[in-house]
Design a protein around this nucleic acid. Structure first.
Length: 684
DNA sequence: GTTAACTCAGTTCG
DNA sequence: CCGAACTGAGTTAA
């Protein structure tokens, strides 16, 4: 919509009609056939077979665990062409880029040794052991553990693509957030207590086969893009980027002349071993096994085994190794983030003697040229934040002029435009007249801060008993309406149920895009479900709007809840883990009466967010009370993890109007430049 | 069966 | 109120 353009900009006349807007593609593909996959009951008694409902799997899918992927390779016709026709049938990828998978295992993979893999694959004993382990395990997990590896039939995507990766990550995090929500509320009894929601969620997903790139492979993991960020090690496993839950080195065994040799596939550098390097394209990585012998008080020598051996072989073979950089953001050091930095090769290795006697393996990784920068970008942004490096193209240090608690810079690296058209910065909604539902409620009576699980809190009651946010302020699920505590509540302003009222928390900047006017992006990494901002502005009266119908077309800064928005799923499919799923999982918003906001004259950063048919931000209605009225707000949340400097976009939806169908070109329609494969071509 | 592995979340301590 | 240091629960693979 080019919201940031000057109203009189010549670009504004760029109204090009393309195709009918009816061809709305759902945002979330169907990379796995959930409905059919979940057709069987997940709650079978242990030991009972359930082949009756399972498809005739010739090439059994891994049920859980990363080791099972090796089993697949064993069946995979020598590794080179892991492409069972069955799997192909069972896992349509929504007609997306699917394409040819023949290059999935290039080069060295072809030498993969089936026998060796078989030796290491002992799923049954493993499972038995696991299920004996502890009674703390949930029913679901026990079933997963005891489940035989053949014939259960959830085929994962053997070859990932972008949609599958997004789907897997979205499903994972949605389930994880839900488990966190339950944990916060202590709604599970002690035997079912969730200590590690991330592991618990991933267990379920592995069990259901909701993952991509399950085969270990050299080189790229299809669908994972350089610069992608992750917040849990287990996420790397789910998308096939790095198959080790804890270990930093992932490898496979390759059949050699005499014996099998390991070969490194991917590494995670967490920086704790002091693997720093001046050049961002170089990484000095330390081998594993460094530890301090407390008895003798010296560092123990590392051994040339396991990951170290694999890295050693890779330094001779010079094969591609995926590198994931673990780092802590300068702004929020408590959060660890993993950045996929693309492919590297090991140039050489050596042994370094530490002063107290320990020998440490060192490997020099060099980044392959021609890849988009990821880690280097990070370093740059961090330096901007710390003030070490001046921000180029800065034209205004704070767009909000002090209204927000953090500065909102305006930058232009593209052309000479000095600033967006002037407007009044306002943090929230301005009402032209009293608006909203009158309630004679005084809000909740909680003393300090509302506590998840406290069903006496009237605000929690209105949310259906669930606290809408996790302890760190992340939205758990999309829902009809989020009810926040407000000024009328007795709880303190720092109550965890007041996420959308505190203004901006992320370091954002308004920037000039190449071809879409001004846009909005963040310097901070954003995890899925993070509150970004609300849509601030002046509330318009619907009657007024229809009177001045022409006005509405001209006003690019209108947010209208009565538009038609492409439905999409953000919450996980409840049947994935029925026992923890809330009753109402509807993502259809329940908006009492249409809300129309104009940010033309008055607004906040939200007015600069551009449209995309494949957005990374969505909106959610939020209600809270002020001055004895309930006021509806439009809050934006991150749809997925968003890397720094990525433009923030949401789906503008379609203007609801009788005369817009057919061949006539409605006024105000614009050519969409979102660049998504799902692009609808145009928007209002 | 045991243990290593560049985890994660929560608590304590300076 | 931080960051560091520590602890416990947790997983897979070897």
């Amino acid at each position: 919509m080019e919201k940031g353009l000057f109203p009189n900009s010549p670009h504004k006349s760029e109204i090009i009609e393309i195709k009918p807007l009816r061809s709305l593609a759902p945002l979330i593909p169907k990379p796995v056939q959930l409905s059919s996959q979940l057709g069987f009951s997940p709650f079978f008694p242990i030991g009972e077979t359930r082949e009756t409902q399972a498809p005739p799997v010739l090439n059994p899918a891994p049920l859980r665990s990363f080791k099972s992927t090796i089993v697949e390779e064993e069946h995979g016709a020598g590794g080179g062409s892991f492409r069972s026709p069955f799997v192909e049938e069972e896992t349509p990828r929504g007609g997306a880029s699917g394409g040819d998978t023949s290059s999935s295992m290039e080069g060295l993979d072809g030498h993969c040794d089936a026998d060796d893999n078989q030796k290491r694959a002992a799923p049954d004993s493993q499972n038995r052991k696991s299920s004996q382990k502890k009674n703390k395990k949930t029913q679901d997990q026990q079933q997963a553990d005891s489940r035989p590896s053949v014939g259960a039939g959830l085929a994962p995507n053997d070859e990932g693509d972008r949609e599958s990766v997004n789907f897997v990550l979205m499903t994972f995090d949605s389930l994880r957030r839900r488990l966190c929500q339950l944990e916060d509320a202590n709604q599970l009894d002690s035997t079912n207590a969730i200590k590690r929601a991330d592991l618990r969620a991933s267990n379920t997903l592995m069990f259901k086969g909701i993952r991509t790139n399950p085969n270990k492979r050299v080189g790229v993991a299809p669908g994972v893009e350089i610069g992608d960020i992750f917040f849990f090690r287990i996420e790397l496993c789910l998308v096939g980027l790095h198959g080790q839950v804890m270990s930093g080195i992932d490898y496979i065994n390759i059949k050699g002349e005499d014996k099998d040799e390991p070969l490194a596939l991917s590494i995670v550098s967490s920086g704790i071993y002091d693997d720093d390097a001046e050049d961002n394209d170089i990484l000095i990585y330390s081998g594993q096994g460094e530890h301090f012998n407390k008895k003798d008080k010296h560092l123990v020598d590392q051994k040339l085994q396991r990951g170290n051996l694999a890295l050693d072989r890779s330094s001779q073979q010079h094969n591609e190794v995926r590198v994931i950089r673990g780092l802590r953001d300068v702004g929020n050091k408590s959060v660890k983030i993993y950045v996929y930095d693309g492919l590297y090769k090991i140039q050489y290795s050596w042994i370094e003697k530490v002063q107290s006697g320990g020998g440490v393996f060192k490997y020099k990784f060099v980044r392959l040229p021609g890849q988009p920068s990821a880690f280097a970008h990070w370093k740059m942004v961090q330096k901007w934040k710390e003030g070490i490096l001046p921000r180029s193209g800065l034209i205004l240090s704070d767009l909000s002029a002090g209204v927000e608690s953090i500065h909102v810079p305006v930058v232009n690296d593209v052309d000479n435009e000095k600033a967006p058209a002037s407007f009044t910065y306002f943090r929230s909604l301005r009402h032209s007249k009293p608006f909203g539902l009158i309630r004679h409620s005084n809000g909740c009576n909680c003393s300090k801060s509302c506590v998840p699980g406290d069903l006496n809190c009237s605000c929690i009651q209105r949310n259906g008993g669930d606290f809408p946010y996790t302890a760190n302020g992340i939205l758990v699920s999309r829902k009809q309406m989020v009810y926040e505590c407000g000024p009328m509540c007795q709880c303190l302003p720092n109550c965890k149920n007041r996420v959308c009222q505190a203004g901006l928390k992320l370091k954002m900047e308004v920037f000039k895009t190449k071809d879409r006017g001004w846009g909005l992006r963040s310097l901070d990494p954003i995890r899925a479900g993070t509150f970004i901002c609300e849509y601030a502005g002046e509330i318009l009266d619907r009657a007024n709007v229809s009177q001045n119908g022409k006005e509405e077309h001209i006003d690019e800064y209108v947010f209208d809840t009565s538009r038609i928005f492409a439905p999409f799923k953000w919450n996980y499919e409840p049947s994935i883990l029925e026992e923890v799923s809330p009753k109402d999982t509807s993502e259809d918003y329940a908006i009492p009466s249409p809300l129309i906001i104009s940010a033309r004259n008055v607004g906040n950063v939200a007015r600069f967010m551009n449209h995309s048919c494949s957005p990374n931000v969505f909106w959610q209605p939020v209600l809270y009370e002020e001055n004895n009225h309930s006021f509806l707000h439009i809050a934006f949340f991150a749809l997925r993890h968003i890397s720094p400097l990525t433009e923030l976009t949401y789906d503008y939806g379609i203007f609801r109007s009788g005369h817009t169908e057919g061949s006539s070109t409605p006024k105000g329609r614009k050519k969409c430049l979102c660049g998504s494969s799902k692009c609808r071509g145009s928007f209002y």
